[in-house]
Simulated scan of single mutants.
Amino acid sequence: MGYFVNVEPGVNLYVEDINPGGRKTIVFLHGWPLSHKQFEYQFNVLPSMGYRCIGIDWRGFGMSDKPMNGYNFDRLADDIRTIVGVLQLHDFTLVGHSTGGSIAIRYLSRYNGYGVSKLVLIDAAAPIGFTAETADRLLNESLNDRPKMMRDVTETFFFQYISGPFSDWFFQLGMQAAGWSTAAIIVTLRDEQLYADLPKLSVPTLIVHGIHDKVIPFVQAQELNQKIRNSQLVPFQYSGHGLFWEEHEKFNQLLQQFIG
């Protein structure tokens, strides 16, 4: 089922809640500039295996409201905390892809891991996001020709071949975001870092990362593994930045094993 949760006056975030009666809960945070729909190939499988899967569109993206402000990691983590409280979630696994991984890290740091029993970081944009050079290029493209920027992002996202129809679908996920929120997150990824957050993480953490990732280099996953205690790193040999699709069978199986 899908519904909206109010996170502040005038701002409602879309939540997709699949199999609410599942035995264990997984909360998914998508990457920039996408939406919860990027996890289609997890939602196809995991609920039928007894898991409750919750996909959240951040503010400014997907089906959520698109205010002009609130695109720093603190505010985005606050939004997640509000949803966790409204849904009364506890003992759940938090899964974050790319920038969603950054938000997940900030959530655990800012709220002392409230409700989270395990953490999964997929190609996480941490402890840093974009370099100044990359961010400035993306920002310029976003503000002047966002469709071209999104097409370029799609072409560099995956290591494996993607079909034309899949590329079109992925492109539309990105174009569903607002232009201002798309640009604001680029600035956040350029200006904010998560080094101070990492020592505060204590839950078991699974780090998965495509070795061919052209968006967030694999070396950053190795750094996360070194700095997050009680973490394990599993390289994905045939993936770029989209292992949730490129090697989704392997990822889904690994996720099940990790959660139990």
Score class of each variant (00 low, 15 high):
residue 183 A to T: 00
residue 158 F to T: 14
residue 222 Q to P: 02
residue 173 L to G: 04
residue 206 L to G: 03
residue 211 I to F: 03
residue 180 W to D: 09
residue 164 G to C: 03
residue 189 L to C: 04
residue 181 S to P: 02
residue 151 R to P: 00
residue 199 P to H: 12
residue 170 F to G: 04
residue 158 F to W: 07
residue 203 V to A: 10
residue 186 I to E: 04
residue 215 V to R: 01
residue 165 P to V: 14
residue 209 H to L: 08
residue 155 E to S: 15
residue 153 V to I: 15
residue 185 I to A: 04
residue 148 K to D: 11
residue 147 P to E: 08
residue 172 Q to K: 12
residue 150 M to Y: 03
residue 220 Q to C: 08
residue 218 F to C: 08
residue 176 Q to C: 10
residue 184 A to Y: 00
residue 200 K to E: 11
residue 156 T to R: 15
residue 218 F to R: 08
residue 175 M to Q: 12
residue 187 V to C: 00
residue 168 D to T: 13
residue 218 F to N: 10
residue 183 A to I: 03
residue 208 V to P: 01
residue 167 S to R: 14
residue 164 G to Q: 13
residue 158 F to A: 10
residue 221 A to M: 02
residue 165 P to L: 11
residue 152 D to I: 11
residue 155 E to W: 10
residue 163 S to M: 11
residue 193 Q to R: 03
residue 163 S to L: 12
residue 162 I to Y: 05
residue 147 P to T: 12
residue 184 A to S: 04
residue 185 I to S: 02
residue 191 D to F: 04
residue 215 V to G: 01
residue 149 M to C: 06
residue 160 Q to R: 15
residue 164 G to F: 09
residue 146 R to H: 05
residue 155 E to Q: 15
residue 216 I to K: 02
residue 151 R to K: 09
residue 175 M to N: 09
residue 176 Q to M: 14
residue 191 D to C: 05
residue 181 S to H: 03
residue 168 D to F: 02
residue 166 F to Q: 12
residue 182 T to L: 07
residue 149 M to K: 07
residue 184 A to D: 01
residue 185 I to C: 03
residue 219 V to I: 14
residue 220 Q to H: 12
residue 166 F to T: 14
residue 153 V to F: 15
residue 181 S to Y: 06
residue 201 L to V: 14
residue 214 K to Y: 04
residue 182 T to V: 10
residue 148 K to C: 04
residue 158 F to V: 07
residue 185 I to F: 03
residue 210 G to E: 05
residue 164 G to P: 04
residue 192 E to Q: 12
residue 169 W to D: 02
residue 152 D to G: 10
residue 175 M to K: 07
residue 186 I to A: 06
residue 179 G to M: 04
residue 220 Q to P: 02
residue 215 V to A: 07
residue 190 R to M: 00
residue 221 A to V: 03
residue 195 Y to I: 12
residue 173 L to M: 12
residue 160 Q to N: 15
residue 215 V to K: 01
residue 221 A to P: 01
residue 156 T to S: 14
residue 160 Q to E: 13
residue 208 V to F: 05
residue 210 G to R: 08
residue 215 V to E: 04
residue 166 F to D: 07
residue 219 V to E: 14
residue 195 Y to L: 13
residue 205 T to R: 13
residue 213 D to Q: 07
residue 169 W to I: 06
residue 217 P to Q: 12
residue 162 I to L: 08
residue 191 D to K: 09
residue 168 D to P: 01
residue 158 F to P: 02
residue 201 L to G: 03
residue 167 S to I: 07
residue 223 E to A: 09
residue 167 S to P: 01
residue 153 V to M: 09
residue 209 H to D: 11
residue 223 E to W: 08
residue 158 F to D: 05
residue 209 H to M: 10
residue 182 T to Q: 00
residue 153 V to Q: 06
residue 163 S to Y: 08
residue 184 A to T: 00
residue 156 T to G: 07
residue 172 Q to R: 14
residue 217 P to S: 13
residue 209 H to Q: 14
residue 165 P to I: 13
